[in-house]
Nucleic acid binder design. Sequence first.
DNA 1: AGGATAGCCTGCGGGC
DNA 2: TGCCCGCAGGCTATCC
Length: 282
Amino acid sequence: MPELPEVERVARTIATRIVGRRVASVRLLRRDICESFRNGRTVKPGQRDLLEGARIAGVRRRGKQLAIIADDGRSLCIHLGMSGQLTWSAAAPARPAQHVHATWSLKDDAGANAGHVLFRDPRRFGGLWTFPSFQELEHRRWARLGPDALTITRDELTSGLANTTRPVKAALLDQRVLAGVGNIYADEALFRARICPRRKADRLTRDELTRLSASLRLVLAEAIAAGGSTLRDFADADSIPGAYQHSHQVYGRGGQPCPVCGRILKAVQIAQRTTVFCPACQ
DNA sequence: AGGATAGCCTGCGGGC
DNA sequence: TGCCCGCAGGCTATCC
């Protein structure tokens, strides 16, 4: 469920907790959720790969992925998948909760315990990837991503959609076309842009592409401001849930009246994803 | 080669 | 009450 707005909230809230602090110790409770890239190949993760001893320099996001970057360059890529959570905890968890796969204990400049970061992911669609430098993370993982959906321009969207005959809904979910959009925000942006999700991506007019790029930026920015969408259990690093689900116009509302024209919203399957739209407005 | 499909995984809610 | 099934879905591998 975490899409761009939810990941952005996690990035912002975890950054305030960890930047400038030092990683005292790391525990990897499930080795198979982590992959390390070192000396030109994929190896089993060690403590140092997972930032042990590092001072955290910054947190970045691209699409739905996070990067935690140390001041010596070591970089950790975190993907939350469907059910991943990155949580800050002031107190040391006595016994790691179920599905917690990794923990980091941080210290402040004075060497005092500062708190703990927990990566929990029940369904394990997410994971961790480590790199010796942020450049290698970008090259190995982020290079295949399209432009970030939060700032995508009409021209970027146009070139991303120009060479595919897939339904526009399916193309919006393709992270190579643009990074960060999932099922919720694809439906919401298409509704705001008044575009039918079944339209062939390469057949959109210039005007529709203008509306769609603007709707993507607007819906994602609004969702970030609202703290993201919490359908079941999403929360930021401070365990605060989002409220944007109350502003959804179409997602999850198949069979209910369109908030604009009152006609019944239709739910169909596109690219194996439930897709809700208004047959009149879109 | 682009596009469709299967599979990974757990939790929850509906139906019987 | 309890069990089973379907569904949720980001992403990769595989097939057509």
